[in-house]
Nucleic acid binder design. Structure first.
Lengths: 340, 340
DNA sequence: ACGCTCTGAGAAAACGCTTTCTCACTATTC
DNA sequence: GAATAGTGAGAAAGCGTTTTCTCAGAGCGT
């Protein structure tokens, strides 16, 4: 049992021995239980500091039934959006003394369930970030993951708060922006098929089409990366569109770069929009018009929901349904009037 | 003791009961101990799957004395460099079944020691990433953190592997590049004072100065962010330099953006270099010449060192001193010949 | 048929902590 | 001065595993 007898770490027993009291009393002192004689408490504290005693968190976790850790499952840690969510979550959780454990599914949706379950068991709760798994699987998994907070997905399990960005609304506003500038031939560079947020964008664009039958809107497959945008230059030019909405900022930046290489001027010849408003968006040339997702707030909110879940055994009702975050239009230099 | 009687999770005892065997036997079966009768093993496995039993990792950790988790302390998770290291570390560790716990010190160097200690206690090892604390403090802390891997710092504790990037060499190569292009008036946009890597760059530049007394090199304070670069435009222009080396890619991009706003052409009027080769560097306009730090490899290496540390009680000597990573020059569009 | 080894599984200890239970002792009260 | 309440701290029982210890019973040789 246990590890072999390396230089054993200092434990509660050592402190107890040194202070001439029992384990229990040491524990009481360490946890600020005031039913201890001040003199003895002082003796214990002295012994503790002298031995530089630090309680073993694993032992504590087992006894307390909590780990002060939450897990997050992301599809791809190299994606700036998930990095930002992770950061917001981590900072907010740290404020309350919680740490974050990472699980990256590398976009392999079949791994997500195992990964999520494993992470959940190690932690007090789980943030499931834009899971790629199917609805059925998510529905089946959800109950076993509680407490869980979902990002960009929802479930019938009413206990699981859901934070969603209204990509449909955002993309419509971008389309309207372009139409307002006089563009009549638009194109959308679609993201990964498995991405639920891509689906929301497509739904939004369907509404847009219905409202603007006069506008020509082409759907082009791209992806979610720089490279995807860069490689889409040909299909964009071939489409004859003068207003192009990219799946996200990365794709838009790739496109910007590709267009620049071809000598196509932005926004004079073609207007380009992104989505997300990643930090770099305001520093491209031209600066990128985009729909800003309040991503830091998202991570922070995720923690606050999680905290409520962990603290209240019975959640204080009132927050029914998913919380919707509305993207905010950020009009910059990459969009301009259509050519006369 | 323990948590209150919520719907108690399924434990080893339940499986044992259902299979009509003892805890011990269930444990043996779950851990592939072959001293169990195949028939009984099968019965146990059946019970386990039927109850959907999953061992509690906290209990396991306590018994085994390991958590299958490593910690990483970073000064600022919003920095792309640290994000990339985190990612490389996380991916590599995941391959071996380890997870990563995050601790962000928010650049508050006084918090680092506590944060590091706390993280270390929860994990089987710690990666200390570019710590901002002083040398003395680091030296004092190091032994208590073992097993630990250091990034961009080193310590006298020979047990702690150290992965370092030779920023001094990299910045010299960039300076040489500019000199080779005919630039004689250079400027360096310095990073945060506390940053050790900034110090290494300054040392490299001192060597450069010694080797090239004919070159005029100005040091300008900037910082490590976009904004820092953006705000340095005035001082750069005032310096009269035609070749500017930024502390890192972010600063360079900020500068690029600011110069563009001023109508200064890059590289015709001024050449700009970055450092790091973050993913965005190849997509700026013009594309950014920089010194590429093999950042993914760094995270991965950090894990491999950690793994060796965790596995071998006595490290297989041979890897003496820090591992040095040499930046690789990435010449792109932001550097060009000095004006005639 | 007796004793021997060997196999397999249960009992129990250990991991390091928290918390309940229990009780000795002191301080109060009539 | 004895019964009562109150206080503080030790003993011990958990938390959920793994692993050692132990022993019943099977198989084998003589």
């Amino acid at each position: 049992m246990g590890r072999r007898a390396t230089t054993r770490r200092i434990g509660i027993a050592d402190v107890a021995l040194k202070a001439g009291v029992s384990h229990a009393t040491v524990s009481r002192v360490m946890n600020g239980n005031f039913t201890v004689d001040p003199a003895i408490a002082e003796r214990v504290r002295a012994a503790a500091t002298e031995l530089n005693y630090q309680p073993n968190p694993v032992g504590r976790s087992l006894a307390l039934g909590k780990t002060d850790t939450i897990g997050i499952v992301v599809p791809d840690l190299s994606n700036p959006t998930f990095q930002a969510i992770l950061r917001g979550l981590s900072m907010a959780a740290a404020q309350d003394g919680y740490r974050v454990l990472i699980a990256d599914s590398s976009e392999v949706s079949s791994e997500e369930a195992i990964l999520a379950g494993e992470a959940r068991r190690r932690c007090d709760g789980l943030v499931l970030c834009a899971p790629r798994m199917g609805d059925a699987e998510l529905e089946e998994l959800a109950p076993s993951l509680h407490p869980m907070v979902l990002i960009n997905r929802s479930t019938l399990d009413t206990r699981a708060p859901s934070l969603m960005v209204d990509y449909g609304q955002g993309i419509q506003e971008l389309a309207e922006l372009l139409v307002g500038l006089g563009h009549t031939r638009l194109a959308f560079l679609a993201g990964p098929t498995r991405s639920a947020s891509n689906g929301l964008r497509l739904q939004g664009l369907e509404k847009f089409k219905a409202a603007h039958p006069e506008i020509n809107l082409r759907m082009l497959d791209a992806g979610s990366s720089f490279e995807a945008g860069h490689q889409s230059v040909d299909s964009v030019l071939a489409s004859g569109a003068t207003g192009v909405m990219a799946f996200n900022d990365l794709v838009a930046m790739g496109l910007l770069s590709g267009l620049h290489e071809r000598g196509v001027r932005v926004p004079e010849d073609i207007s380009v929009t992104g989505f997300d408003d990643i930090p770099f968006a305001r520093y491209t040339t031209p600066t990128l018009s985009t729909a800003a997702v309040p991503i830091n707030e998202l991570g922070q909110q995720a923690w606050h929901r999680m905290r409520d879940l962990i603290r209240n055994v019975s959640p204080d009702a009132g927050t029914e349904g998913p919380t919707i975050f509305l993207p905010r239009l950020e009009v910059r230099g990459s969009t301009g009037p259509a050519k006369a």
